[in-house]
């Protein structure tokens, strides 16, 4: 039988997947000069899942939100979807590794790690699927530098959510 705690974790994961998928989908409609230049707000869901629920759930949320977002935009299985999926997973693992390694880094450092690894994974998978890896290397600065402010923004937003959760009277969900 599932415990009350298990149910709560599952509900939280479902909520975060939904939030991530909605953010990911809405972000697609923001006009931007270059296709990869988006803040990646959906990563907030992964960061929150990692902090509030746990590392395994963070990866599940990352996969779930891309899957759901791909379903919403009708992109399931397309190169863009494969790029999103693989970079979301890479970013999730990178953040978990940095977090679990006990490096004295705050949520900002972890989020920047996630954003930068997401950008690098994205450009390399795109390099393998769409253009050549040598072009991917040349694109690195254009992709990695905007990831730094994106990571800071995601950390700021996640921090705002976490501090509010901690203030909540029913705050037993956060460690």
């Amino acid at each position: 039988m599932r415990s009350r705690d298990d149910n709560r974790r599952m509900a939280l994961c479902a909520l975060l997947v939904a939030v991530g998928a909605v953010l990911w989908t809405l972000e697609e409609f923001i006009p931007r000069p270059l296709p990869w230049l988006k803040p990646g707000l959906a990563n907030v869901a992964t960061v929150l899942a990692m902090v509030i629920v746990g590392p395994v759930e963070a990866i599940l949320v990352a996969v779930g939100r891309v899957l759901l977002g791909g379903l919403l935009l009708g992109r399931l299985g397309s190169p863009a979807f494969i790029i999103s999926m693989s970079s979301a997973i890479v970013a999730g693992f990178a953040m978990i590794i940095v977090w679990k390694s006990k490096v004295p880094m705050s949520i900002y450092g972890i989020s920047i790690t996630g954003a930068v690894s997401h950008a690098v994974a994205q450009v390399f998978v795109a390099g393998l699927l769409i253009f050549s890896p040598s072009i991917a290397i040349k694109l690195l600065p254009l992709v990695v530098i905007p990831a730094i402010p994106a990571g800071i923004l995601i950390a700021f937003l996640s921090r705002a959510v976490i501090t509010r959760i901690k203030k909540h009277p029913n705050k037993d969900i956060s460690q």
Partner: peptide, 21 residues
Amino acid sequence: MRLKPAPLDLLPILIAIAIAL
């Protein structure tokens, strides 16, 4: 999880700049 920025947060930024170069 620390919520306030720590000095080591600069590490991923530096790595990112190195990757960009």
